[in-house]
């Protein structure tokens, strides 16, 4: 595709500050965790293998990265779509010979690359922990459940940011709204005890397997993403 690399480069340059700030937070939290005494946990009578130690370190690092992605990915999505309208740089590209769908694809590629960078490590480390003597089987299963919950929430918030950013001018409103709405909606339903929709607990409306199944969360996220993409492609700058 003509100039696609330039478009992806531009998206990276637009988002890299946020990415590096997030990376700094991850490193800082990691240092904080390991500066505490008795971490990693001294268990198993001192018979902790190197692989186990690495898995624990990796677990902390990836756990932090995954949780940072809850905020980072919606922010990048919002900045990618609404940010270029807010700073009027969209007007710079609009008269150039590149279609809006190709421009959208460049944004998706960047967003996917950042998501993979944040999520791939945890997916690599998780299997190591499964066989580790440091982690109880029940803890491991609940940890995977938590991971799924965070993944679903991140996906939903990112897709909502994508939709809101295709609509509103401000990337800040889009990002904050995207993170706040999936929290606020179940809270309201929980508070009002809405029949059939009220979640069993505060956070469980969208992603708890005992509430609305995660597949529905994915479906809603896909719908948000498709709607946001449609808004972007159809817009004339």
């Amino acid at each position: 595709m003509n100039g696609f690399d330039q478009l992806v480069w531009r998206e990276w340059r637009r988002s890299r500050t946020m990415f590096f700030v997030a990376l700094g937070i991850i490193v800082a939290l990691l240092l904080l965790v390991f500066s505490q005494p008795q971490t990693p946990p001294e268990t198993a009578g001192g018979k902790i293998s190197v692989v186990d130690r690495m898995a624990v370190v990796g677990y902390f690092a990836t756990w932090i990265a995954v949780h940072v992605s809850v905020f980072l990915l919606p922010m990048i999505a919002a900045n990618s779509l609404a940010g270029e309208r807010a700073d009027r740089s969209a007007e710079f590209i609009a008269p150039l010979p590149v279609s809006r769908s190709v421009r959208l694809m460049a944004k998706v590629v960047l967003l996917a690359a950042v998501a993979i960078a944040l999520w791939a490590p945890v997916l690599l480390v998780a299997p190591l922990l499964g066989n580790s003597q440091l982690v109880k089987a029940d803890d491991y299963r609940s940890g995977l459940g938590l991971l799924g919950m965070v993944a679903a929430f991140t996906l939903l918030a990112t897709a909502l940011a994508w939709l809101l950013a295709g609509w509103v001018e401000s990337p800040v409103i889009a990002a904050v709204g995207a993170i706040a709405i999936p929290v606020a909606v179940p809270w309201v339903m929980f508070s009002l005890q809405v029949p059939f929709l009220a979640p069993a607990s505060f956070f469980s409306l969208w992603f708890d397997s005992e509430g609305i199944p995660q597949s529905l969360t994915l479906l809603v996220a896909a719908a948000f993403f498709a709607a946001g993409s449609g808004l972007y492609v159809r817009r004339l700058e």
Binding site: R14, S89, F92, P95
Partner: peptide, 13 residues
């Protein structure tokens, strides 16, 4: 077509 706007709104960075 070449287009020159009243001011260039390229990304500031």
């Amino acid at each position: 077509v070449g287009y020159v706007p009243d001011t260039l709104h390229a990304d500031r960075w």
